[in-house]
Design a protein around this nucleic acid. Structure first.
Lengths: 174, 174
DNA sequence: ACCTGAACACCGTTCAAGT
DNA sequence: ACCTGAACACCGTTCAAGT
């Protein structure tokens, strides 16, 4: 009787996401995933070509999760921004991995789509892409700095986010 | 006669910066630095407690470099933003390391100082910090995304930067 | 004081051999 | 088909021994 599949790719990726959040990217080792999934490390290479493929797979799963949340949000820029921030707070390591993992450009098309629509509404077709890049850059930069503790000193971080959001929206509506 | 010092900390950090830019963060190993400096890896531990300390030292040197460039710029927001971008293009891996390395909050005080002054000029004391955070977040986010290739598809990246810069300045002057 | 070789732990990865 | 132990390369780090 052939051995039944013990470690499906989905199980591996789920284990990877958990380990990532609890131990950080450096703790996301093949051995840690193998232990969690009840298998020896070499067996993972039946499903994934190498550790980089594991990181990419976890990044994709994270992006899917984010995309779903953004689609569920009311489509305005403030709502999208706050949803994005909540997501980064929930899965800080996954959020970081999205920027770190070397992904093909199209990987971000789906999560950006709702923002692109919102920007088209406020600035029109012609500058929608520039506006979306402006918005995404601010949000992503803010969240990275917030998560890395760069805003720890001085004043209210929530307040700084809402201030930036107000300025952002005002500047696009101008 | 005691052995003369072969590997000073300054030499080690300089070697580290070079290796970082040519081989990336994962290529910045203790062995690579030791080779470059003409010493065996264990000798580095006379100067640095561990690899993390090496990364921090390289990050600090990078920050000093950036600070000098920003101080030399004409102090307006557009000039600071373009100087920051030039720096990220010159030393992309160093730029990344500044965000990655776990540094104490005060590490960024000096490079942010010129921007904080510019923001005080345009929005006044009370919201200077919020405005600086808005500006830094946008710039840093934009540069990370640009360097990681997220803007590779569609349109003019320089144009998108100038668009963002115009919106940013306009929103602070409003 | 500074350097070295030897050694250890840990990780990624390959592969021949098992079921 | 899927799994495993054994093995290898590579890296960080420690330490006793050299000058």
């Amino acid at each position: 009787m052939p051995t039944p599949t013990r470690a499906s790719l989905a199980q591996i990726v789920d284990a990877g996401r958990d380990i990532l959040e609890s131990a950080g990217a450096s703790g996301l080792t093949m051995q840690a995933v193998a232990d969690r999934v009840g298998v020896r490390a070499p067996s993972l290479y039946k499903r994934l070509s190498d550790r980089d493929a594991l990181l990419r797979a976890v990044a994709y799963a994270t992006i899917d999760d984010l995309t779903a949340r953004l689609e569920a949000a009311n489509g305005g820029i403030p709502s999208l921004a706050r949803t994005y921030r909540d997501f980064a707070h929930d899965r800080p390591e996954g959020f970081r991995l999205m920027s770190t993992a070397e992904l093909p450009v199209e990987a971000l098309r789906l999560p950006v789509e709702p923002l692109l629509r919102a920007c088209t509404q406020t600035v029109g077709e012609e500058h929608a892409l520039d506006a979306a890049r402006f918005a995404v850059a601010w949000m992503t930069g803010f969240l990275h700095m917030e998560l890395s503790g760069a805003f720890r000193l001085g004043g209210d971080v929530d307040g700084a986010f809402e201030y930036g959001l107000r300025r952002l929206v005002a500047s696009l509506e101008a």
